[in-house]
C-alpha cells in the first residue's frame, strides 16, 4: 500500500512539474502581452517595456520558472493582474464555489446513474433498457450550453419557476438554494448520460458471465442475483470512470458556469485566459492537474477495494 501511494504521489509531483513548465513556456509566446494587457491599448511601447522589466518578465524563462516554483513552495502563487488580488485569495474563493456545485452534482450523479445503468443492463434489449439507453445517449449528446438554454427557456422564460442566473447573491426574490437547481440539473443530465452508458455496458457484460448463470440456477430470486452477484462485478470497470468525473465536475464545468454566471473556478480561468492573467492561469492549471491525478489515484484505490483479485 505504501509503495502504491509513494509511486503515485511521485507521478503526481512529476506531472505537476511538467505541466507547470509547459504552461509557463507557453506564456512566453506572447512577450510583452502581459504588460500590454495591464496598461491597456493606449499605453506607449516604452511604458509597456518598462512595466515588463519591472515585473521581471524580461528574464529567461527557466530562471523565472525556478523562482516561481520556489515561491509557490512557500505558498506564494503571485498576484492576479485581473482581479488585483493575490492569486491565492482569488483561486480559493472560486474553487470553493465550484467545489460546492461539484459536490451537489456528484451526490446526484452517482446514485442516479447506478440505478439507471444497472436497471438497463440487467435485462439487455428489454424495452426499459432501450428507453434508458436512448435517453442517456440523447442527454449526453446535448452540449451543456444547449441543455442550459433548453432548461432555462422552460423553467425560467416559460414557467418562471427558477432564476436564470446563479450568482450566489440573493436578489430578485430568488434564494441562493433555488439558484443551484438549474446548474446542477444541466451538469447531472449531461454527465450522468455518459456514466449511465458506461455502467450499462459493464452490467450487460456481467450478466452474460457464467457466474450469473450459476447464481440463477441456484434458485436465487432475480433481484438477489442482481444485488449480491452482479452489482459489485458490474461496478469494477466504471468505478474508475466515476472517480474521474470529480475531475470534470471541478475543472470542466466552465460552460455551465458561464451560462448561469456562476462565480466558479472555470469562469475564473476563462477570464484569466482572456486577460492573460499569467499568474492565475498558472496556478489554476496546477490545481486542475493536481485534481486530475488525484482522482486517478482515487479511482485506482476504489478499484482495489472492490476487486479482491488485486491485493495491496
Amino acid at each position: 500500500m505504501a509503495r502504491f501511494l509513494t509511486k503515485h504521489l511521485l507521478f503526481l509531483l512529476l506531472t505537476l512539474l511538467v505541466v507547470s513548465l509547459l504552461v509557463f513556456t507557453l506564456n512566453e509566446f506572447t512577450p510583452g502581452a502581459v504588460a500590454r494587457k495591464i496598461l491597456g491599448a493606449y499605453a506607449t511601447q516604452e511604458q509597456v517595456d518598462h512595466l515588463t522589466k519591472q515585473m521581471g518578465l524580461d528574464r529567461p524563462v527557466l530562471v523565472r520558472y525556478v523562482d516561481y516554483v520556489r515561491a509557490a513552495a512557500t505558498g506564494d502563487l503571485g498576484y492576479s493582474t485581473r482581479f488585483k488580488l493575490p492569486v491565492k485569495d482569488v483561486l480559493f474563493k472560486h474553487l470553493a464555489n465550484t467545489a460546492l456545485l461539484a459536490a451537489i452534482a456528484f451526490a446526484c450523479i452517482v446514485p442516479l446513474s447506478m440505478l439507471l445503468g444497472i436497471t438497463a443492463g440487467m435485462r439487455e434489449a428489454s424495452r426499459l433498457d432501450r428507453a434508458i439507453l436512448m435517453f442517456s445517449t440523447v442527454v449526453a449528446s446535448i452540449p451543456e450550453f444547449a441543455l442550459g438554454v433548453f432548461l432555462a427557456s422552460v423553467f425560467v422564460v416559460w414557467l418562471g419557476w427558477l432564476p436564470g442566473t446563479a450568482t450566489l447573491m440573493a436578489g430578485g426574490g430568488w434564494s441562493v438554494a433555488s439558484q443551484f437547481v438549474l446548474p446542477v440539473a444541466v451538469i447531472v443530465l449531461f454527465d450522468a448520460g455518459y456514466v449511465v452508458s458506461m455502467i450499462r455496458a459493464s452490467m450487460v457484460e456481467v450478466m452474460q458471465r457464467p457466474y450469473i448463470r450459476t447464481a440463477v440456477l441456484k434458485g436465487m430470486p432475480f433481484r438477489r442475483v442482481i444485488v449480491r452477484h452482479a452489482l459489485r462485478n458490474a461496478m469494477l470497470t466504471p468505478i474508475t470512470v466515476i472517480m474521474l468525473q470529480i475531475n470534470y465536475l471541478v475543472a470542466g464545468v466552465v460552460v455551465v458556469e458561464t451560462v448561469f454566471a456562476y462565480p466558479g473556478f472555470g469562469r475564473m480561468m476563462l477570464e484569466a485566459t482572456l486577460f492573460k492573467d499569467i499568474a492565475l492561469i498558472e496556478a489554476g492549471a496546477l490545481v486542475a492537474v493536481f485534481l486530475a491525478v488525484l482522482t486517478n489515484i482515487l479511482g485506482d484505490l476504489a478499484y482495489i477495494v472492490l476487486d479482491p483479485r488485486i491485493r495491496v
Partner: peptide, 10 residues
Amino acid sequence: SFPVIILYMI
C-alpha cells in the same frame, strides 16, 4: 489528465 476545456482556453 489535463482538463480538456482549460487546455483549449490556454
